[in-house]
Nucleic acid binder design. Structure first.
Lengths: 209, 209, 209, 209
DNA sequence: CATGAATGAGGCTTCATTCAT
DNA sequence: AATGAATGAAGCCTCATTCAT
């Protein structure tokens, strides 16, 4: 029914409202220093309301990662599906996708790495954990398939495709993390995009035969 | 004085004892979940004693990063000082140094990224903050000098040497972080060294003309 | 009016529906651990609806006790009204009534004792408090009248009839509470009825001259 | 060593200090309405300190019961050990012991019954739970042995000794609970000791052949 | 009447830090 | 220098209650 659907939409909108607020606060203060009260204020809701949409602080935090993973996964899938492109062109598309992922949410990639703490993961609900696992595996597998295709066609060097995908992703996230670190410590000008461009250039030169 | 010196040495030894214990605990539990009590127990000291050697928890935490930065800085300086080696050979030495950095302290690189939080940095003493800045700048500058030399000799592609150094470090730390993430989420076999080897291989292929 | 009456009946039926649900939940979880949400779910109503029928949680809770007090009061009155029975026979009837009270609601007697907390009573509406007082006094007075009759006829020992009524009721509720306690702690077999039988036997032997 | 022992004694004294304060507050307000803050204030300690001596609120609460169980257990054991007394005399001693138990801690008997909630028991540490079980079983077993002796000597009626012990204890605690209830509801004069006296009189008359 | 999302006060508990010994 | 008991601020989270629909 219409009412049912409207409720659903409103519920989802409220979830997004919280996620957006949480993203802002987490990005500024980090996981530890951010309190649920902070997020409540930023989202103009009461603390109790946050718990109607997220089981606890850690789960809210993890949901941010999930969001960017979903975007990444979809974007990478699009690259794959583009028929009629050779692997080198697909690699270019993949790089474009990475810039979009960065623009989609520059800070959350940083936050994703805090998820590593196994102590943190213990508090996540199994469903959420499964979703995170599934999405990250899928995205990586898609990337690997591009590299595999290139290897078979003899245009990429013959290395394990999964390793290449891991390295591609590591390079991307490593540069983001490192540039963010430098900014915090040195307040320098932000060279992120320029550095990322050189990094991908190097990667392409390295992988192509 | 002899006594004075001995006291100094003992004090330094005690500091190291605490750092080693802290490293173990932080690696297992992460910054948030680790309590000063945990570190006190692991170092077989009392909580109060920790505060005789470190101003507060954040400063103790930052000291771990300092330690690996010192190691990194020294190792990179050694590579530089090796005369009679051409840039490609120096790059090989640099890569060897990176493996040693990893072996020196596999987990602390991960912890280093938690330092990003500007909120955390606010609690550090100016001296410590200066030391961290200085060391990381020095190490990066040293790396950059290798790349610059190669560019001038026409064996490396002409990109901003600092950017190349950033990318080299980002690739290294990115792979470590990502493999650690994968281990936590998937309990997979640890492919770190193999992946790192391919990554450096790609980097060399990419940078060389 | 017919409509008026029907409304009244429906309202009362809804109240009973809530009370029945509340009884189940309180019996399982106890006063503290039971939430209004729990009761709402058990009664298949919404939390807000509960407040249309009960001022607050404490009042809902107290209503459970009121219900068993009403039953007790009525049953005891029946025993009194049986003409043509001597006090000993009436005591036997009273004992039968106690078994029925227990069967009517085995757990709520336990809950009744939580009412003691003067802090809890402060939140009750004066009307409800009055009802509880009145009913419990009436039931006890009826019991006492049986004992008084027996004393006057010389078949029961000469003790203050109210004290005898208090003791009779204390013995009954004490056995129930204690057996319930034992069950929780030891998961033993439930000896309630057997123990109650011996208890009443002892009481009769003790009171009869 | 002396220092070791002094520390132990001080630790135990502090525990008692908290227990005494908790007893006062719980008696006034009941389990729900009492906050850890209340107990902290009453014991002139900080909230955090309470957690150095008790795992959580429920465990502190349960410790009160443990204390009276210990007293009860010891007192009943003394009655048993008195040689040269016949069962009837021992029963008299037992009754005296009950009065002492009541004087030792009039309110905590009431609190003991809140322990029934299985939800509450779940939060207790296994050790504490074991202690409570062991002590209550021991005390009851001792009581039962008195009744058994009386039955064998032909001075008590032949009923299951454990049931008789349960009834004896139920009568005692039932009267206390009921009189406390009446006081709360009616603010009457306190007839407890008088009623208890009649109750034990009845019990003795009932059990003796 | 019924709903159930939202509230927000307040409880329990943790833990970095201090200080008397 | 070392201890470790004590502190108390602050965080997470719950849940009785309300109110717009």
């Amino acid at each position: 029914m219409g009412i049912q659907e409207r409720k659903e939409r409103e519920k989802e909108r409220r979830r997004q409202q919280i996620i957006v607020a949480a993203k802002r606060v987490f990005s500024q203060k980090g996981l530890n220093k951010t309190t649920m009260e902070d997020i409540a204020k930023e989202s103009e809701l009461s603390p109790g309301t946050l718990y109607l949409y997220f089981k606890n602080k850690e789960e809210l935090y993890a949901s941010l990662s999930l969001r960017i993973l979903q975007f990444l996964s979809i974007r990478v899938a699009q690259v794959i599906q583009d028929q009629g492109e050779d692997p080198s062109e697909k690699l270019d598309r993949l790089i474009e996708a990475m810039y979009e992922v960065y623009d989609f949410d520059p800070m959350v990639i940083i936050n994703m790495f805090h998820l590593q703490s196994s102590e943190t993961l213990k508090n996540l609900s199994p469903e959420l954990l499964t979703q995170i696992k599934t999405l990250s595996k899928k995205a990586l597998a898609h990337m690997a398939s591009i590299f595999e295709e290139g290897i078979q066609q003899g245009v990429f060097i013959d290395r394990h495709p999964t390793a290449l995908a891991d390295i591609f992703w590591s390079l991307f996230s490593g540069v983001i993390l490192w540039e963010a670190s430098k900014n915090v410590i040195n307040q320098d000008k932000n060279y992120l995009k320029a550095t990322l461009s050189v990094a991908f250039d190097l990667f392409c030169r390295g992988i192509k035969i």
